[in-house]
Design a protein around this nucleic acid. Structure first.
Lengths: 340, 340
DNA sequence: AAATTTTACGTAATCGGTTGCATAAACAAT
DNA sequence: ATTGTTTATGCAACCGATTACGTAAAATTT
């Protein structure tokens, strides 16, 4: 067990004060080059490592950024995280990642823990369940930068990073309409979450715009778990007016739907045209390939990282809450092709 | 800006010593119930939050566990992480996650940072590139529990969590042989990583066992990136003895291969039977559905979490390096079916 | 050479909890 | 009533780094 070296050990060894050692190690200007080099040399020799606990206590900062996401194991989320991690890591920050598992209670606990851990900033994508946001005021009160991405909530002075979900929903639906669909079912997530709510609004606006108000109520709320495909299929197969278009707010679930529908004898896109959301890798694997909305996760992560670093570095005024809207893109593949 | 409360503030307010406050807050036995309740009440009222920096410094532990993975955004890895996070979070630990991006240099930096951050334990899945392991000795020297999972390396006193990759490789290959394949190409990852190396060994052993030593050298090393599919296709289409079986050490890459082969006019499984590895969700989406080896990521994460918690809690002797081998399973789907 | 400025470093307080040791008060035992 | 135990709490050192403030020595100016 190697004993650990402190700046006091180094100070004693070199016959200088701990302050001098600390300054040497931190590139303080008023230290002679000679002394600095002696200290650096000794530090290397003894294998000195800074004690972050002490440093953090003294500096009141941790160089750590907290993240709360609904779950880690989704293609989209892990891609966003990958982008965040890359950015903040390059800037010398560590990432503490925790998952709410879509539970408000766990989100609250995580927020508390991260606060106590002394994170310098917090990035959040909300749980489906969350309705109360008090657990975040602790951060805003202490002026700890707080940023929401994807599943956002509008808090004062909190930047958000999203795509224009309503427009995307509108474009997706409109695309189906343009391909000839008249009776479009929308499968959405929890409407409490703005991502889903806005896509739903976009869906309705598209119907309105094209005079298809008749099918306004064709909405199924789903948790997007594989087992809930059945209720969608059930709905489609028992619908009085036959469904000819399906707009699913989630690619993997759209894929499950396609598989189940195909098994049931429906032809995609001949009988039902389908469009998903996210452009997950699976959308290119399924047959027919799935039309979808590109949702640039990595870019979102990178921007989230950059934004929060800007706030931490002071280069962005903390009071100026920026709302970053990332460009999405309609991706047309086979699953929504018009068939003559 | 809410001012923060310290135990000194509470002490002054209640007319007791900081020590008493600290003890009250930590369920110390020798504090009267009355005092304890007064302290707890005052703590709640003032919104007292412990300062982990100070606590960590004093206790020399952070309640934080570090993780280094090649990349976050892979289905397998994010699933493992999800399992780890769940376990350690329940035990009150936070997870600092960093990615090496398959680069030895970044892995070294990450290890250093995590060490300095004072993580109580480290979980690692190695980068493809890594050949030198000095950056981990810092941890073992200081008796900080170190555990490898999936991409492991055998260090003294470090538990590892893996599956029996050689057996899995053997079973996968043998399955293809049993389906009638005579000329099996194996697409592997970097052979420096034992996961790939062992699967390769299993592949060779299967060939040997079945007297197919002829195709022993049919191995392609790949980085599994989409763009490298071409070189595999190239290899197959120019091979003098026609390839009739394909064992790919990675599901998503197997999927890319199937798509590319199909486009080239090969029929799967009639012309070439394919088996992958991991049982990623995509394997059930591709047409034909992909035979594969089930690799239980979530379980691996949970076990990794449990194991490291055992070491931290002292319930497992730190000197006893356990090697946990998780059961895998051959999953037979359409892509490898014998056709009459 | 004296006065002034600059350079280089030390002193000591501080960050906020934790805890071994000491002690006063309350209680029990003789 | 005296001594011995418990119980409840305080004192003060400690964890290790940072930094405002002060100062002696060196460099510069007059």
């Amino acid at each position: 067990m190697a004993k650990k070296t402190t700046i006091y050990d180094l100070a004693k060894k070199l016959g200088v004060s701990p302050a001098t050692v600390s300054r040497s190690l931190n590139e303080h200007p008023s230290i002679s080059i000679k002394t600095k080099e002696r200290v650096l040399k000794a530090a290397k020799e003894t294998g000195y490592r800074i004690n972050k606990f002490a440093s953090n206590l003294s500096l009141q900062k941790s160089n750590t950024i907290g993240v709360i996401v609904p779950r880690l194991n989704s293609d989209f989320m892990s891609t966003v995280l990958s982008g965040i991690e890359k950015m903040v890591n390059e800037a010398g920050y560590n990432l503490i990642i925790s998952q709410s598992l879509e539970l408000e209670a766990k989100e609250k606990i995580n927020a508390k823990t991260l606060f106590e851990s002394g994170v310098d900033a917090l990035l959040v994508s909300l749980a489906n369940e969350t309705e109360d946001y008090d657990h975040f005021t602790t951060f805003t009160e202490r002026k700890i930068p707080l940023l929401f991405f994807d599943r956002v909530f509008d808090m004062p002075n909190c930047p958000t990073i999203i795509i224009d979900n309503q427009l995307a929903g509108l474009e997706a639906t409109e695309h189906l309409i343009n391909q000839g669909c008249q009776n479009i079912l929308h499968v959405s997530g929890n409407l409490k979450r703005s991502v889903y709510n806005l896509r739903y609004k976009g869906y309705r606006r598209a119907l309105e715009k094209h005079g298809l108000k008749g099918c306004e109520n064709l909405v199924q709320i789903s948790n997007f778990k594989p087992e809930s495909v059945q209720s969608v299929i059930q709905y489609i197969s028992t619908s009085s007016a036959p469904i000819d278009g399906l707009f699913v707010s989630n690619d993997s679930f759209a894929v499950y739907c396609i598989k189940a529908l195909t098994k049931k004898g429906y032809r995609i896109p001949e009988d039902i045209k389908v469009i998903g959301f996210n452009n997950d890798p699976v959308s290119e694997v399924i047959n027919p390939e799935l039309s979808t909305i590109e949702y640039p996760g990595y870019k979102m992560g990178v921007l989230a990282g950059q934004s929060i670093l800007g706030h931490l570095g002071g280069s962005i005024d903390i009071e100026s809450a920026d709302q970053i809207i990332i460009k999405h893109k309609l991706i047309i593949r086979e699953s929504s092709q018009k068939c003559n």
